[in-house]
């Protein structure tokens, strides 16, 4: 019996809440990705600047989401809980893994971004 398994049994993870959190994050990511595509198209960015724009802004969205929604409660819980592990940028209170939170948006929104980017680039520039 490993200690992590035991830890999970003492304070279990509720699957439904985790799914709800992930879905909320996914909705935010796909909608913002489309909006970034619209702005990149209107600005007329091409090739690398466009993808860089997407990278920077989706990371910025993740950071904003962390600062506004995740950080207040998770830092307070880590500080007051007496666990001694009050790591900054720790999203394990609400999400499955750090990768899903920080980089998941890049994959989820890419197709929507390219679609709206192409559409508005074509409408404005071509």
């Amino acid at each position: 019996m490993s200690s992590t398994e035991r830890e999970l049994q003492i304070s279990p993870i509720v699957q439904e809440s985790l799914v709800h959190n992930s879905r909320t994050l996914y909705n935010l990511q796909s909608i913002t990705a489309s909006l970034f595509g619209v702005s990149a198209g209107i600005l007329g960015l091409e090739s690398y600047p466009g993808f860089l724009f997407y990278l920077v802004f989706s990371l910025l969205t993740a950071v904003l989401f962390y600062v506004l929604r995740v950080a207040p409660t998770s830092l307070a819980a880590a500080g007051g809980g007496g666990k001694g592990k009050s790591a900054l940028l720790d999203t394990s209170r609400y999400f499955r893994g750090p990768f899903e939170f920080w980089a998941g948006g890049l994959m989820n929104g890419l197709a929507g971004f390219i679609l709206t980017w192409t559409l508005f680039y074509g409408l404005v520039r071509a």
Binding site: Y26, S30, I31, S34, G109, A111, F113, L115, T118
Partner: peptide, 18 residues
């Protein structure tokens, strides 16, 4: 083809996520 792959976010917005 681009529409097939990229419209999921539009549907998310219009019809809800599931």
């Amino acid at each position: 083809f681009l529409c097939i792959f990229g419209l999921q976010s539009v549907f998310n917005f219009l019809l809800g996520s599931d």
